[in-house]
Simulated scan of single mutants.
Amino acid sequence: MKKSPLLKEKLTAQLREQIQTLQTDQLVKIPSERDLSESFEASRVSVRAAIQTLVQEGLLVQLQGKGTYIVPSVHVDTLYLMRSPDIKGNDPYYTNFLVEITNLAAKQAIRLSMVNPEGPLDAAVKGPIIVIGQMDDAKLDELKAATGQLYAVQRYAHREDIVQIYYDDYRIGSKAAKTLYDAGHRNFTLLAGPDKYDSSRLRKQGFLAYAQQVGITVQIITDKMNWEGGRRAADQLLTGELPHAIFAVNDWMAAGCLQGLREHGRKVPDDISIIGCDDIPLASQISPRLTTFSLDAKHLVEELLSVIHRGSRTQAHGTHEQMILTAALIHRESVSTTTHKE
C-alpha cells in the first residue's frame, strides 16, 4: 500500500537529519527534487518547500545553474567587514548588503565585525575579510598578508589573488541600451558618474558599445551620482532638443532627472523614457515607477558565504575565483514602447 505523502514539516526534519550525516568540509550536491520526491515518497511541492527552508537555515545553498549543495561543515566564527571610504553608510546597495549578510550570518551563528579602513589593521583581526567597494592596492596587500582570506564585493580586474563576487556592470549597460533600442528609441542620453567609480564606468562602456553596434550616437552627461546630479542633468537637457530615452547609471540620478523633467512639463514616458539601476525603494515609489535593474543583495550574500565556507582551500592554493552575477531588469512604467519609432 502506498504511503501518504510526507507533510512539509516532517519532510524538512528528515531531510535535515540526512544532510547533517552527509555534511563534510566540502560542498556536496544533493539529488534533484524529482529524485528526492521519489526517495521520500513526497510531492515535489513539499520537497521544494523543505529545500527552501534548509537554504534559509544555512544548511543548503543553491548555486545558479549548478544545483543545490550541502554547506560545508567547516565553521567560520567571525567575518570581518571593511567598507570603502567612497561608500556612504546610507548607500542603498551597501545597506541592503549589510541587512542580508547580518540575517544569514545570524542563522549560521557567525559573528560580524566592522573593520576601520583607515590606518593599520588591528592585530586581533584573524579570519575572512570582506571588502565592500574599491580599495587601493596597498590596503588590499595589507589585508591579504594579514589573514590570507580576502573576499571582494567588487571587481578588481588586475588582481588575480583575490576572490571576487560582483554584478556584471558592463552587461547592465549593454542591456539598458538594447532595451531602449528594442522599444523603438533612436536618440539616447547617458547620465554617468565619474570614471573612478567602476560601476559607472563599466555601465557606461556597455551602454556605448551596444549603441555603437546599432549605429546610435549617445549624448553623455557626467555629474555626481545623486538626486542633485540628476536634476542638473535635466536642466541641461531642457536647454536643447530632448532625447528619446535616457539611461542613468543609478536610480538616484534617474529619479532626480525624472523629477526635474516633470517640473518643466515634460512627461515620462510619453515625451521621454528613462531606465535607472539598483532598484532602490524610491524606484517603485516615484511616479511613474522607474524601470531599473535589480542587484539582488540576498542572492549575492548567499553566493558569497558559500564561497567563504569552501574558501580556506581556494585561498591556500593561491587560486583566483570570480563569481559574476547577472542583474535582473525590472520593467515598470518609465519606458514607452510606442514613442519615437523610426
Rank of each mutant, 00 (worst) to 15 (best):
G230F: 00
A233N: 01
D235M: 03
D235I: 02
D235W: 00
Q236W: 11
Q236R: 15
L237S: 07
I246D: 05
I246V: 15
A248G: 13
N250E: 06
D251H: 00
W252C: 14
W252P: 10
A255R: 00
A255H: 01
C257L: 02
L258N: 02
Q259H: 07
L261A: 08
R262W: 05
K267R: 15
V268Y: 06
V268R: 10
V268I: 15
D271Y: 13
I272F: 08
S273T: 07
S273Y: 01
S273K: 03
S273L: 03
I274D: 04
D278Q: 02
D279G: 03
I280W: 00
P281R: 06
P281M: 07
L282G: 04
S284A: 14
I286H: 00
R289H: 11
T291I: 04
T292G: 11
T292M: 09
S294P: 07
S294F: 07
S294K: 12
S294E: 12
L295A: 15
A297R: 09
A297Q: 08
H299L: 11
L300S: 09
E302K: 10
E302C: 08
E302Y: 14
L305G: 10
S306E: 10
V307L: 10
I308F: 00
H309M: 09
G311K: 02
S312H: 03
R313M: 09
A316S: 04
G318W: 08
T319G: 05
T319W: 07
E321A: 04
